[in-house]
């Protein structure tokens, strides 16, 4: 792994660990699995299963993991787009869980979400100005002020005033993501959950959108939860990173510290598996066996143990908790810090 330490130490984060904007404690989101004509519940899918998390005001917290790890569900549950099964959520000192419909609506102004293709999932017959202004209309902003805010925001995300009168299908993937950003930004929120915002984009367009996200955060004093599967992208944009596996956070540290000393075996494997466009990287690496187990019936003890190269009997019995290993670097592993050997061969 190549670490450029000169640029790695310089992020201009304004985050203050004492100033927590979003706080989650014991957060769980379970989905019932139903079967048969009576839709009887036969099992429970534990998408998010006991997450404690603080997001500091002004920081970008990256949430990384593979499909099915619960990262998107966690993002949505924090905003109460999905109702939590259990646990507490505090936003800017307000207990979000206790809010009724009206209180939640008022709170939504401050917390927005951008999806992989936010605009593609919206009404294709609506013009861009109506898509972007929809939130303003819901919050009762009158038309003239609305149009002004919409045009101002479109310009800020790099779209012309003419685009306001056009329809979403007339735009490329990168431009559509700009529209999605404008839609979130127009309400001047404090917090944005960006859920795989650049995953569907070509790399040359991806960098445009990442740069824009960084600029907007500075300009509007935003706090981001950046959810993605690409470790290099998450590492680039985030001040801190939480690594998720099967509904739990297994490691949490500053981006620099996570890359410099990954403590959890899963994080080490993720870093090792990340393909980088650097010649000569054709070396042996840590290759995990098997696939991610089902979140319907997760392994006992440590959920990673079935794929872990250094698992011991204790891992099946005692669930490791996220413990601090210095410099606010948390890892949930009985053997945190053990260096994982490279895999000699994947063939039997």
């Amino acid at each position: 792994m190549t670490l450029d330490l000169s640029t790695a130490s310089a992020p201009d984060s304004r985050a203050d660990p004492a100033d927590v904007l979003v706080k989650a404690r014991g957060l769980k989101k379970h989905f019932p699995v139903r079967k048969g004509i009576f839709k009887r519940q036969v099992a429970t899918l534990q998408a998010v299963d006991g997450v404690d998390l603080d997001i500091f005001r002004g920081e970008t917290l990256g949430l990384v993991g593979e499909s099915g790890c619960g990262k998107s569900t966690l993002g949505r549950t924090l905003l109460r787009i999905l109702e939590p099964t259990e646990g507490e959520i505090e936003f800017d000192g307000i207990d979000v869980n206790r809010l009724g419909a009206r209180g939640l609506k008022a709170q939504r102004k401050h917390m927005q979400i951008v999806f992989q293709d936010s605009v593609g999932s919206l009404d294709p017959r609506m013009k861009v100005k109506d898509l972007v202004g929809e939130g303003l209309a819901i919050h009762g902003i009158e038309r003239k002020r609305r149009n002004h805010l919409v045009l101002e925001t479109l310009e800020r995300v790099g779209l012309s005033a003419e685009s306001a009168e056009r329809y979403p299908h007339m735009f490329s993937g990168g431009q559509r993501q700009r529209i999605g950003l404008a839609r979130a930004l127009v309400l001047r929120p404090k917090f944005i959950v960006a859920d795989e915002p650049v995953s569907a984009l070509d790399v040359s367009i991806q960098s445009q959108v990442l740069n824009l996200l960084v600029e907007l955060k500075r300009e509007f004093n935003l706090t981001y939860l950046f959810v993605a599967h690409d470790l290099a992208v998450v590492g680039y944009i985030s001040d801190r990173i939480a690594v998720m596996y099967l509904g739990k956070i297994v490691e949490l540290a500053t981006s620099d510290d996570l890359f410099a000393r990954p403590l959890h075996p899963y994080t080490q494997a993720l870093l090792s598996a990340n393909p980088e466009p650097i010649p000569g990287r054709k070396h042996q690496r840590i290759v995990l066996r098997g696939d991610v187990p089902s979140p319907i019936d997760p392994p006992s003890g440590c959920r990673f143990r079935t794929r872990c190269p250094i698992a011991q009997p204790i891992c099946a019995e005692v669930e490791p908790l996220l413990e601090d290993h210095g410099r606010s670097h948390g890892a949930a592993c009985h053997f945190a810090g053990t260096k994982i050997p490279e895999t000699p061969s994947v063939l039997a």
């Binding site: 640029t7 960084v214 290099a232 992208v233 890359f259």
Partner: peptide, 14 residues
């Protein structure tokens, strides 16, 4: 234009 592991947002991407 591709972020590599260890690159940070203080330096814009191409």
């Amino acid at each position: 234009s591709i972020p590599l592991l260890g690159m940070r947002y203080s330096k814009p991407l191409k």
